[in-house]
Write a protein that binds this DNA or RNA. Structure first.
Length: 156
DNA sequence: GCCAACGTTGGC
DNA sequence: GCCAACGTTGGC
């Protein structure tokens, strides 16, 4: 049966899909994740109702922009089958899909964006290896502990 | 725009 | 199974 709620961070490039876009559509299939570790977190770790922080990357002020919830179990990412999609993967098949996604439901924007620069000031408390503060980490979906979640939200 | 860090690919 | 080459991520 249900395990206790878990927490996650999911990155997005706001020029492609921002927290405002998520607010507008309400729920979004989180397509385009093409990293095995990130996929495995969605497929094996996420549960309905889990908390998600939405992080804006590759933009003028990168940082945590809002909150969302996991709104589905993992299922095959349809864009991998679509030759017209940027996320098309010719090596994947419907019989044996390679990439999975979950639906993500908007909860709220943070009262202000928490810049990465501020998050970094708490690198010690967040712990070694926390992907946002670890050097060179590009992982786009990763777990956040309850303590990290609380600390990050307290910066709002 | 630069470039360091990283993941993936493919030759061997 | 190694590892060099390559493509991508993403902060700055």
């Amino acid at each position: 049966m249900g395990t206790r709620k878990r927490y996650w961070m999911m990155k997005t490039e706001p020029e492609t899909f921002s927290i405002d876009d998520l607010a507008r559509v309400g729920t979004e299939p989180w397509n385009g994740v093409r990293n095995y570790q990130a996929r495995n977190f969605m497929r094996d770790g996420m549960q309905l109702g889990d908390g998600v922080m939405i992080y804006h990357s590759n933009c003028k002020v990168p940082g945590i922009a809002g909150l969302a919830t996991v709104a589905s179990r993992a299922y095959p990412d349809p864009t991998q089958f679509d030759p017209q999609s940027d996320y098309f993967d010719p090596a994947s098949s419907r019989e044996n899909p390679r990439w999975q996604l979950v639906d993500v439901a908007f909860e709220r924007k943070l009262r202000r964006l928490i810049p990465l620069e501020e998050v970094k000031r708490h690198a010690d408390a967040l712990g070694e290896g926390f992907p946002l503060t670890a050097r060179g980490n590009r992982l786009s979906v990763f777990p956040v502990t309850a303590a990290q979640w609380k600390l990050l939200l307290s910066l709002e």
